[in-house]
């Protein structure tokens, strides 16, 4: 409960600062939005660590290959970083640049998931009668 009040407060304060600054210097407004995003993420990071630890523990108990969970978590990190950059680009009005960042991150995520897809296809091929 304490955390959410802090996060909402930071968001609203940053919003007011951005609205004030934007009339005079639009480039500083982008800086404020970047910094407020980073601060809010640092408040959320403790909870995220707990969630990831729980996922790893469940994965170990159920005997699923640990490699796949690692890939999944890495993809989440890439998606988070890419989303951070994409939303800042869109806020600054550069949606074409945002699309390029999105395309790049999508390509990286798909290239990381290739081992999983390969395994799946191999299993299907093994199941099929010759």
């Amino acid at each position: 409960m304490d955390e959410v009040i802090k996060i909402v407060g930071i968001g609203l304060v940053a919003l007011i600062l951005i609205i004030i600054i934007k009339q005079y210097r639009p480039e500083f407004a982008i800086y404020i939005s970047i910094i407020s995003g980073i601060i809010i993420f640092f408040y959320a990071i403790d909870k995220l660590t707990n969630i990831i630890d729980l996922l790893k523990q469940i994965c170990n108990q159920s005997g699923v290959n640990n490699k796949y969970l690692g890939i999944l978590i890495k993809m989440t990190g890439i998606a988070f970083l890419a989303e951070f950059a994409i939303s800042i680009c869109k806020d600054a009005g550069e949606s074409s640049l945002a699309n390029k960042v999105e395309l790049g991150s999508k390509a990286i995520v798909i290239s990381m998931s290739i081992p999983i897809i390969h395994n799946l296809l191999e299993i299907i091929l093994n199941l099929m009668p010759n």
């Binding site: 910094i35 980073i38 640092f42 990071i45 990831i52 890495k74 989440t76 990190g77 970083l81 951070f84």
Partner: peptide
């Protein structure tokens, strides 16, 4: 003055961005 202010804030922001990248890298084990 505008340019100087921009550079000052950029140095402040870049430090935080690098710490964000480091944290994400350790958290998601990238």
């Amino acid at each position: 003055t505008t340019l100087a202010g921009l550079v000052i804030v950029l140095t402040l922001v870049i430090k935080e961005i690098s710490s964000l990248f480091d944290t994400v890298r350790t958290l998601f084990s990238l």
